[in-house]
């Protein structure tokens, strides 16, 4: 910068005022909140991504579980099974014997 620049001369004089006489700086209102708001997403980006995927997987997993349970539930009714012909014949004979 040119030495005969009046701004340079003024700035040199003004900068002497900065050494030691300035009051201690204070943290502006809300600054720490903004810092934390911007730091948190940077740090937990991976964890947050996994968390979102896990949350999306919960309803899908529940639907699969319900479908599997309806398909192969252990206490299914016996009438769905094929009837035993010998047992049917015994029932018929027993009914006829009872009528006679």
């Amino acid at each position: 910068m040119n030495t005969n620049n009046p701004w340079k001369r003024l700035a040199d004089a003004a900068s002497r005022n900065n050494t030691g006489t300035e009051t201690p700086a204070e943290m502006p209102f809300g600054f720490d909140t903004r810092v934390l708001a911007q730091l948190r997403p940077q740090r937990q980006l991976t964890a947050e991504l996994l968390g979102r995927l896990a949350l999306n997987a919960i309803p899908v997993a529940a639907a699969v579980l319900v479908a599997c349970w309806f398909t192969a539930r252990p206490d299914a009714p016996a009438k769905l099974a094929a009837p035993d012909p010998v047992a049917l014949a015994d029932e018929v004979f027993a009914e006829e014997a009872g009528e006679q």
Binding site: R9, A13, N17
Partner: peptide, 17 residues
Amino acid sequence: ATLAASDTPAPDATHAH
């Protein structure tokens, strides 16, 4: 004082600031 010749005393620091 700022606009004066360079060999003159510099302006007061507080007022210059």
